[in-house]
Design a protein around this nucleic acid. Structure first.
Lengths: 194, 194
DNA sequence: TAGTCTTTTTATCATTTGATAAGTGCGGGG
DNA sequence: CCCCGCACTTATCAAATGATAAAAAGACTA
């Protein structure tokens, strides 16, 4: 470990700046467009069927993005403090979302509206670069997930999750983890007992 | 159908311009950096373990991006004429790729080197916008794939593929389709016979 | 502490998929 | 024309997972 600690990213602006150098003017413009909101545990941040108009930064807390079929729920991803998220398809296409977002813990978020981000990207090249890098990160995450999902049996997927996101496990229910892995809660319990 | 036919996108430049207005200077700069190459059926376009240094546009032909485990092969995606692709993780992170790319048909591609794209993005805001939109499309595709993979049994996945990419089926082997769906070729054969 | 609700585990059975092997059909080269 | 290789199908059995129900373990409240 290095003696000089990496400063922890604690807000939207720091996060953006950690991906790209933002000139002062862009920083100010961005800051002026940010809003914050607080959600209770169990509260819906976004409902299925509504257009996702914001891109979010999680200041603190934990949430899941998920969707339903007739009988089961599936989780796309968990997001905890220090991460940005949105319901990407709805946000980009401006269509109603099939995904919902729910706070799993009391959650404090900062957000930026679609129209504002669009304007900022048009006005500041550096903001466009930020957004491109953000999309790159999202794409890489999803690519990994596809590869893993194709390749792995549930048992392997569970152990991988333990290794990569072990800390999160103490904050989410096994039911949610099962939904994330694409199996039933009962199956997960079975796997854990082996 | 509309009487006025949508002009078919036939090259890299048209493709880029279809996503964003590019000013003439950017167009020229981009054009000057493009290269083309021809691959035979069965030829490797990118080997596992090498860094993917290019972003590609498929002028004609068909290819697969895929990876191996000990015993099986899994296909991330097929790309046919009119589409852009790269091995995203390797291209963005500059790390050796776990994926390989192989031509399933005689394939003609145009490509752009990483360093050149990087420079173009830095110099021209419009090129950065183009790249951002390209990443958006990639991310949306992958998001859909994750959702579908989580949700669907193989049988449903097969029928969805038929509906959405039925035409492709006439150009790919059932073995490759099975790899794409994450099942064995024998399982696919079984499903088809129901 | 008892009672109630939620989460997790265990058990049973049906279905899906994988592994393996053998069979079928088709096309190209000798 | 025959043989061989390749793609695909069919058959059999084992392993993994889903659906359902019930039991056990925790957590919270009165």
């Amino acid at each position: 470990m290095n003696r000089i600690e990496q400063a922890k990213v604690v807000n939207f602006l720091d996060f953006a700046a950690s991906l790209t150098k933002l000139e002062d003017e862009a920083k100010e413009a961005l800051t002026s467009k940010l809003h914050t909101k607080q959600y209770d545990k169990g509260e819906l941040i976004l409902e299925t069927g509504t257009v996702c108009n914001q891109i979010y930064f999680v200041e603190s807390g934990l949430l899941k993005t998920f969707f339903y079929t007739d009988t089961r729920e599936f989780i796309m991803r968990f997001f905890s403090e220090g991460n940005m998220f949105t319901v990407l398809d709805s946000f980009l296409t401006r269509q109603p979302s099939t995904y919902a977002v729910l706070a799993l813990e009391p959650t404090h978020i900062t957000y930026l509206n679609y129209a504002d981000l669009d304007q900022l990207c048009a006005r500041y090249h550096s903001m466009e670069t930020f957004f491109r890098k953000l999309l790159s990160m999202a794409a890489l995450n999803m690519m990994d997930r596809i590869g893993n999902t194709l390749e792995e049996k549930a048992q392997v997927a569970y152990h991988r999750f333990l290794k990569e996101h072990g800390k999160l496990l103490q904050r989410i229910s096994l039911a949610d983890l099962a939904s994330y892995l694409g199996i039933t809660q009962v199956s997960l319990s079975r796997i854990r007992s082996l």
